[in-house]
Computed example of a mutant assay.
Amino acid sequence: MINKKRLSVILSVFLSIFLVAGLSNSNAQDSNVVEVINNSENHTVFADLLDETGLNDVVSQAGPYTVVAPTDKAFEEMDANLEDLRANSDSLESVVISHLFQGEVAAQKAEASLGIEIQEGGIEASNGLVHVVDEVIEN
């Protein structure tokens, strides 16, 4: 589980960036990025990991955020490494954070930044974007 000090730092950084940027997304759908992921049949594992780390509480805030969401298939390909990851809360948090961006990041920029291929990009949410990938970004 994410420790309170680390969560406080993450929340402070995200809040500071949001306040400085002064960005809003008034024409997005009603669901936030966490709800978009939770409502997807193909992202149950990532939804669970967001919850396990407590980062779902962070990225369900006003944002904007961009979430690069690995499919369940991507996590299945990790085999036993997924259980090892879940057993180490620091590693789990690090991997989940590597799928999150502060601000709205276009699919093409996220691909270049992360060295991945986005399968479906630009799913709008009330507080940002969700991009779908078939791989897990591991540190």
Results as ranks from 00 to 15, higher is better:
L7Y: 04
S8P: 09
S8R: 11
V9S: 10
L11M: 14
L11Q: 15
V20Y: 06
G22L: 09
N25F: 10
S26T: 15
S26V: 11
N27W: 03
A28M: 09
Q29E: 13
D30P: 13
D30T: 12
S31F: 10
S31H: 03
V33L: 12
V34R: 05
E35P: 11
V36W: 09
S40L: 05
V45E: 05
V45C: 07
A47F: 00
D51G: 12
E52C: 01
E52D: 15
L55A: 13
N56E: 14
V58S: 10
S60K: 15
S60A: 15
S60M: 09
G63D: 11
V67N: 06
A69C: 07
F75V: 06
E77L: 14
M78H: 03
D79K: 14
A80N: 07
A80V: 05
A80F: 06
N81M: 09
N81G: 05
N81Y: 07
L82N: 04
L82Q: 04
L82E: 00
L85P: 02
S89I: 10
S91G: 04
S94K: 15
V96H: 07
S98G: 10
H99P: 00
F101L: 04
F101D: 00
A106Q: 01
K109N: 06
K109D: 14
A110T: 08
A110Q: 02
E111Q: 03
A112Q: 03
G115T: 11
I116Y: 01
E117F: 08
E117G: 02
I118K: 03
E120G: 04
G121D: 03
I123W: 00
E124Q: 10
S126C: 13
L129H: 07
H131A: 02
H131L: 05
V132I: 15
V132K: 04
E135M: 13
